[in-house]
């Protein structure tokens, strides 16, 4: 399978096999008009199988989303077909309108135009809670 190397953009590598589509959806890559390659179940020495996403455009990539899905993902920044930076991911302290509160008793289920905001409650256990009702994400 041949996928052209990209000139300017990002390679999101070492995604756990099966998680690629979730990242595609959360990053709203469907809305991009540039070439986007989703490679699923690629071979990996480290992981056995992995997913990879290549984006051939210098978009404003939301690293918080990637950090939330899996902080072990690697993000390579490509400029003129060369890797110029490897971004280090961290669990974001706060996420706005990335994940949504499912608690039917939460004010976010009824209040008009209210952003869904989650904060990191426990870094060790990777637990996020809704700022309004404390429900776990």
């Amino acid at each position: 399978m041949n996928i052209d190397s990209i000139k300017n953009g990002f390679v999101i590598d070492h995604i756990k096999a099966g998680k690629g589509m979730e990242i595609y959806r959360l990053l709203k890559l469907k809305k991009l008009s540039c070439p986007v390659a989703m490679i699923m179940n690629a071979q990996s020495f480290k992981m056995g199988k992995k997913d990879v996403i290549k984006i051939d455009s210098d978009i404003n990539l939301n690293l918080d989303i990637l950090g939330y899905v899996d902080p072990d993902i690697t993000v390579n920044v490509i400029k003129d077909s060369v890797i110029v930076e490897k971004k280090k991911l961290e669990l974001p302290e706060k996420m706005t309108d990335i994940i949504f509160c499912k608690n039917p008793r939460c004010i976010s289920s009824t209040e008009q135009e209210l952003s869904h905001v989650f904060t990191l409650a426990d870094r060790g256990r990777r637990i996020y809670r809704c700022i309004y009702c404390d429900a776990e994400a």
Partner: peptide, 26 residues
Amino acid sequence: HPKEGAPLVAANNATIPVINAGDGGH
């Protein structure tokens, strides 16, 4: 308010102090 977090929404929008007098089961 019966909805959890409603007083926080009120506090974020009011220009006077808000006291939560009970928000749902929260």
